[in-house]
């Protein structure tokens, strides 16, 4: 097992490396010269050359990459073009705001989706299955930013029970979960965010449970005299690797902070920041955010892999 963990972790390194190359090349993939944003429009040829040299753009690409990587590894992502603040502060601030939402949305969504899917999978073809499957299809098909707007209209405009957008009057810096006046701002975004993965998780769980329930060993378990609950416990453990795979992906997406939902609720998280950075051509912020999110994805995948192999030892062999 230890060897497997080591191997998986070593395998993550080239992936992380590849991701960093892609992030680095964003500067060149994005249309337009990155310097044109900083330089005044009437800059002389000498000035351009000077700046180019100062930023190191006159050096060969691999050298630039290594310099960039060296900075990144020491936590220096450069300055945001829009705010003139260090990118690392911008990114960690936005990520922690998104994390606040996901830390509530994920248990809610995964719990609900898993419970619905497991219930439906245990009774395939029955009324509860049709109900869950129907609800999941609706959930998957509804555009969630639309749902967010509808929730705002209902709870913020009609009933005036919850605030519509933002993080409260004091902003994100002094936001406290323990104060209701702040915490109430989270409710609508959390609920909307949570509804994104419920459908897909319910469907995956349902399919996995129903599939395992049809396997031969389930008959063996019943033939042993186990109660239906004990049989279901076996089935759930067997279906867990498949469910975990989807949960890992969904967790990664949610950490990226749905751009649409954070925009609808003007929640200053990673998704909101990404959209701002794209509009402002704020390449350093874009680079930093994407690099962080990709690393979260890589780490989540690693954790899912390890969990899967702990549940199903057959995965370790490949």
């Amino acid at each position: 097992m230890l060897a497997y963990i080591m191997r998986r972790m070593l395998l993550a390194i080239p992936i992380a490396f590849g991701v960093s190359v892609v992030c680095f090349s964003l500067v060149y993939l994005a249309p337009g010269d990155p310097l044109s944003v900083i330089l005044p429009a009437d800059a002389t040829q000498e000035m351009v050359a000077q700046i180019r040299h100062a930023y190191g753009f006159d050096r060969p690409l691999p050298v630039q990459y290594l310099f960039w990587l060296g900075h990144v590894l020491t936590g220096d992502f450069g300055m945001s073009i829009a705010t003139r603040r260090p990118v690392i502060l911008e990114v960690t601030g936005a990520l922690s705001n998104t994390f606040m939402l996901t830390s509530f949305a994920v248990p809610l969504a995964f719990g609900l989706g898993y419970a619905m899917g497991a219930l439906a999978g245990c009774f395939p073809g029955r009324a509860v299955d049709r109900l869950v499957t129907g609800a999941a299809v609706v959930g998957v098909s509804l555009p969630n930013y639309w749902l967010g707007i509808v929730l705002v209209i209902i709870f913020a405009v009609e009933f005036m029970a919850l605030p519509a957008t933002g993080m409260g009057p004091k902003g994100s810096a002094q936001f406290s979960l323990l104060r209701w006046s702040d915490a109430q701002y989270m409710i609508l975004p959390v609920v909307t965010l949570a509804l994104i993965p419920v459908g897909i998780i319910a469907r995956t769980t349902r399919a996995a449970v129903a599939e395992v329930l049809n396997l031969d060993f389930v008959t063996t378990l019943r033939a042993k005299g186990l109660s239906e609950i004990a049989v279901i416990r076996h089935v759930l453990k067997n279906s867990a690797p498949q469910v975990l795979a989807v949960m890992g992906l969904q967790f990664g997406y949610l950490m990226g902070g749905s751009i649409l939902i954070e925009t609808v609720f003007t929640w200053p998280g990673s998704g909101f920041m990404l959209s701002k950075a794209i509009i402002n051509r704020d390449i350093p912020v874009l680079q930093g955010t994407i690099l962080f999110l990709s690393m979260i994805f890589v780490a989540t995948n690693l954790v899912v892999d390890l969990l899967q192999s702990m549940i199903d030892p057959r995965i370790r062999r490949s």
Binding site: L215, D216, F217, T219, T220, R222, G225, H234, N238, D312
Partner: peptide, 24 residues
């Protein structure tokens, strides 16, 4: 029935690969 299954009466299946739970 639960008492009977596995207690009074036991069954052996054709394909031991699929008849045993792979994750235990």
């Amino acid at each position: 029935l639960g008492e009977l299954r596995g207690g009074l009466v036991s069954m052996i299946f054709q394909e031991p690969m699929t008849a045993l739970d792979p994750v235990y």
